[in-house]
Every structure is written in C-alpha cells, then in structure tokens.
C-alpha cells in the first residue's frame, strides 16, 4: 500500500487529504495517470512530487510503505 498526501486545491477538489493506493510498486508518472483517470485530477499536471518528504521526478518508482505527496507550486513566505 502506498500513502498519497494531497494539499491545497488538490485536497479541496478531492474532499480529502489522503488516499491509500493498493499496489506493490508504481512509477510516479503512472500513479499520476491513474489518479487523473480515477478522480478527474487533471490538476496533477504541473504539480511536483515528493517521496518520503524528498522531491522526486515522474520517473521515480514508489514501493509499498512509501508516502507520496503531491506538491502544487508553493506560496509560503
């Protein structure tokens, strides 16, 4: 199982801040594709990804037990 965290407008659109994805391993680009299909989350284009609290790329692969966070363009400060 992979834990997926959502923030800002992504969280608002889905109405929840967390999803559990039942899979052993998946590439980030595939995970994004899957979520876009399943939840109409087209906002995932142009959104950064973090795996276990470190920035990652679409080519990285996550495994069961990992936490993926989708990071929309940040606006702190």
């Amino acid at each position: 199982m992979i834990k997926v965290l959502l923030f800002a407008h992504l969280q608002e659109k889905l109405g929840k801040d967390q999803l559990d994805i039942e899979t052993n391993q998946i590439k980030i680009s595939e995970l994004k594709h899957k979520l876009k299909d399943q939840y109409y989350l087209n906002e995932l284009d142009g959104v950064m990804t973090a795996i276990n609290e470190e920035y990652a790329t679409d080519e990285d692969v996550v495994k069961s037990g990992d936490t993926v966070a989708f990071i929309p363009p940040v606006s702190g400060g």
Binding site: G46, P73, V74, G76, G77
Partner: peptide, 26 residues
C-alpha cells in the same frame, strides 16, 4: 522549495495562490 500554500481570502472571493493566479510548473 518549502511545501507551504497560501489561500487568499480577498474582498470578493478566495483562491489558493500558486496555481490559478501564478501558473508555475516545474
């Protein structure tokens, strides 16, 4: 790089900053 997001509550409406207003992609 710091994952913090600002939601502006304007006089007429509200929005998450960093997406609609300033379309940045990486």
């Amino acid at each position: 790089i710091v994952p913090i997001w600002k939601r502006e509550h304007w006089e007429h409406g509200e929005t998450w900053i960093g997406n609609q207003l300033e379309t940045i992609s990486y």
